[in-house]
């Protein structure tokens, strides 16, 4: 991996943040329907302060995932989030491309 790529790699960042003693949550795209901006397997890493790196969409739903991450960091219980134009919250966090995605959100534990 090039240094440029490593500095932006969510999994390297997750490990580094954890080593620094920061609370860390990891989000992963586990399923997509229709046109989705990021492929299955993509990661977003979030710390306890709401700092983040990586992406699970083209910037459409990251805000909502970061909001949920605080709960997952507090409870340690993973959850599966679903986003799409069919959601009643679509006006807030829908995917403008018309796709749907499911995101697995978990805490990184020692």
């Amino acid at each position: 991996m090039t240094n440029e790529a490593k500095m932006l790699d969510p999994l390297e960042i997750a490990e580094a943040w954890h080593r620094q003693g920061r609370a860390v949550a990891l989000a992963t795209v586990i399923e997509t329907w229709g046109s989705a901006p990021r492929p299955v397997g993509s990661h977003l890493v979030i710390d306890g302060e709401g700092n983040f790196e990586g992406s699970v969409s083209g910037g459409c739903v990251e805000g909502a995932v970061i909001g949920e991450a605080a709960d997952v960091i507090a409870s340690g219980v993973p959850r599966v989030l679903e986003f799409g134009v069919a959601d009643e919250t679509a006006w807030r966090v829908g995917l403008s491309c018309g796709g749907r995605i499911r995101v697995f959100l978990e805490r990184v534990d020692g």
């Binding site: 999994l11 997750a14 490990e15 992963t28 993973p78 978990e106 534990d109 020692g110």
Partner: peptide
Amino acid sequence: MQLPSLQKLNEARAARRAAVVVNDLSSGR
């Protein structure tokens, strides 16, 4: 994800070896 799995994964990626992670969606293991 637990730190030992994350470290093992990152080491494999750094060594250019293909890796798989099995995530249990209910427990987070």
